[in-house]
Measured scan of single mutants.
Amino acid sequence: KKKIKIYIENENGEKKTIEIEVEGDIDEIAKELAKKYNVKIVKIEP
């Protein structure tokens, strides 16, 4: 498992940072999160 930080922006332009532990393809997981929460991924840090 890797701990990563995902910087997101919602439709109101509010920026947030999510810190999660992931296993597998980080890009795939980030895309799923973006779709699920309707946010834009700004940056992903390993």
Rank of each mutant, 00 (worst) to 15 (best):
I6E: 00
A30E: 04
K15F: 14
I26C: 04
Y7A: 03
E9I: 14
K36H: 07
K40R: 08
K36D: 03
K3R: 12
P46H: 14
E11C: 13
V39E: 03
K35H: 07
I18S: 00
I8S: 02
T17W: 14
E14P: 02
K31H: 09
T17F: 09
I18T: 00
K31G: 07
A30T: 07
N12Q: 11
K5A: 04
E32V: 09
D27N: 11
E28K: 11
K16T: 14
I29D: 01
G24P: 00
E14N: 07
K5Y: 08
L33S: 00
V39Y: 13
I26Q: 03
K40S: 10
V42G: 03
D25C: 05
G13P: 00
K36C: 09
K43D: 06
K43C: 07
I18M: 09
D27Q: 12
E28I: 09
I18W: 15
T17V: 14
N10R: 11
K16F: 15
I4Q: 02
G24E: 03
K35F: 08
G13I: 00
K31Y: 09
K16R: 14
Y37I: 01
I41K: 01
E32I: 10
K3I: 12
G13N: 04
K40P: 02
E32K: 11
K1P: 11
K43N: 06
G13D: 02
E11M: 12
E28F: 08
E23T: 11
I44P: 01
K3V: 10
I44Q: 01
I18N: 00
K1D: 03
E23C: 09
D25M: 03
A30G: 04
K43I: 11
Y37D: 02
I18E: 01
I44L: 04
V22K: 01
P46V: 15
K35V: 07
I18P: 00
V22T: 11
E32S: 08
Y37A: 03
K31N: 09
E28C: 08
V42L: 15
G24H: 02
N38T: 04
N12T: 09
K3W: 15
G24I: 02
E19Y: 12
N12K: 13
I20C: 07
E23Q: 09
I44H: 02
T17K: 04
L33P: 00
L33A: 01
N12D: 11
K15T: 15
K31A: 14
I41M: 02
E21Y: 13
T17R: 04
I8W: 14
E45G: 03
E14Q: 12
K40G: 04
K36M: 08
E28Y: 10
N38G: 13
I26P: 07
D27T: 11
E9Y: 04
I6R: 00
V22W: 12
P46M: 15
E28N: 07
K16V: 10
I6Q: 00
I8F: 15
E23I: 12
Y37T: 03
K5H: 06
K43P: 02
K16C: 15
G24K: 03
D25E: 07
E28V: 11
G24A: 04
E32R: 13
E11F: 10
D25R: 04
I8R: 00
V42S: 03
K43R: 12
E21D: 08
K40A: 05
K43G: 12
N38L: 04
